[in-house]
Design a protein around this nucleic acid. Structure first.
Lengths: 257, 257
DNA sequence: TGTCATTACTCGACATAACAAGTTCTAGAG
DNA sequence: CTCTAGAACTTGTTATGTCGAGTAATGACA
């Protein structure tokens, strides 16, 4: 006895495949085959509701999944857009180091420790091309890899960008991706500087290491393609985090438990 | 004028931070600090509803996010469990090749082309240690990197595993991860064999290349830690897919648009 | 004693409904 | 003609409710 229900459009209501999956697949196809072009586009949720004859919850689930995949992104009062395939070599080299390796592992996310607005001060101001007294947003995150903290990222961005960023899902999305993809800021080069240091009390607590443990400190300034500085940060990596990489390379074919 | 509402437990109903985010954060902390131990555990949705004083939709949103992060997983009629941090070096070397590099890029997902049950046949049967007539599940997926297809994966698994797998989100989750994490199957070694070949009609269509284009064919048998074969597959990589890697390495600091 | 049906749980999928909070455009006020 | 208030759209968040489908333990029946 199959429940007939409302007979929507072309969806199979009897199949064991949930509606939102069917819709997701249809939309993905349209994106992939170019029916929906990159940047701009996508029907609104209410439009999709009526064309597919389903409720908003179902539409949102489909769209949410596509967003997770990175195929689309949403802007609050505006709409849903097809994200353009990112030129990932930029990002790859800009992130380098730990991020690259951490994205080889799996379970990765960041915990936002704090977000606050503050005067740039001399150091940050000089890098971000701002007055010392100009407000910038400081963003502290601890990045986790396989449930263990591997780095503390302290990021400074101009207030305008920082305020938008503070509303994003910083736990999972890469800031570079948000800047490039959602905000349309083409990233250019990055200047960085690496040194070794010892964990102080604060760092030790955040990274769950002993005080005095070796830490890699990376200072990185990221510029937009037009040369404007957009992101200045300090990354503090656990010294032993890089062991992960070693482990991967070392094993030739054996080494299991 | 702040809306008072129902005064639930310890959540801030006035803050601009959504309820589900607060709950997610609380639960994540409990997992990270060990209040909820790995494998087994986690209160049910209805329990969480009453302890936090929110609706099921909110609880599910929080749990769903944590699941995306890989911290928890759910089993339909049973409950929600804390997933154990995976020993990711196994997986890293088991997947190697394209997967590793594709996880360095971002937008990656697989499209499930087909899932079907069929007799193992001589070749597959021999590898999976099954009778020729024994049923196995064949799973065909096309893996996308930055919206372009890079490989066709044809996977054979024992029927018991295949039937569970067919219900999973194969578009995003790695099969190895599901096997290890959700099903508790510890993976052991893998045997593989690589050769070069030319795309036939079918492959060309799937990978969006010309017929006759060079394709890398990888045959891989994955064994559980106890030596039992669990996954036999053929991976067909676009020959030019590996260019991606080159690009990453080549660029030293320049190369933007 | 062993099988089977009932029941009580859990998560999965949707629907309907409301309000909040962004954005954009337009019409009316100054 | 400029500026502003607001309407009309968008996505975001949340509540309530329903049905379905797995899982597991219980107890009745053969």
């Amino acid at each position: 006895m199959v429940k007939p229900r409302k007979t929507p459009s072309q969806l199979l209501h009897v199949s064991p495949v949930p509606l939102y999956t069917q819709i997701k697949e249809i939309l993905r196809d349209r994106i992939l085959d170019g029916s929906y072009q990159a940047h701009e586009q996508m029907p609104s949720e209410s439009e999709l509701m009526s064309t597919f004859g389903v409720s908003r919850i179902t539409v949102r689930q489909a769209l949410g999944d596509l967003q997770k995949e990175g195929l689309i992104f949403k802007i609050h009062g505006k709409g849903t857009y097809v994200s353009k395939p990112k030129a990932f070599q930029n990002i790859a080299e800009l992130q380098g180091f730990g991020e690259a390796m951490s994205s080889m592992g799996y379970e990765t996310f960041s915990r936002v420790v704090s977000i606050k607005s503050m005067p740039a001060g001399a150091t940050v101001g000089a890098r971000l091309n701002a007055e010392d007294s100009e407000e910038v947003v400081e963003l502290r995150r601890v990045r986790y890899l396989n449930r263990a903290p591997i780095s503390l990222d302290v990021t400074y961005v101009p207030k305008s960008i920082g305020e938008r960023l503070s509303k994003e899902d910083l736990a999972h999305r890469d800031i570079f991706l948000i800047l490039e993809n959602d905000y349309g800021i083409a990233l250019g080069a990055a200047e960085l500087q690496i040194e070794s240091m010892l964990a102080d009390d604060y760092l030790a607590r955040q990274l769950k290491v002993e005080e005095g443990a070796p830490v890699l400190r990376i200072e990185r300034l990221t510029l937009a393609a037009d040369g404007r500085p957009v992101d200045f940060e300090f990354l503090y990596y656990r010294g032993d985090a890089f062991q992960y990489r070693m482990r991967i390379e070392r094993s030739s074919s054996r080494r299991f438990s």
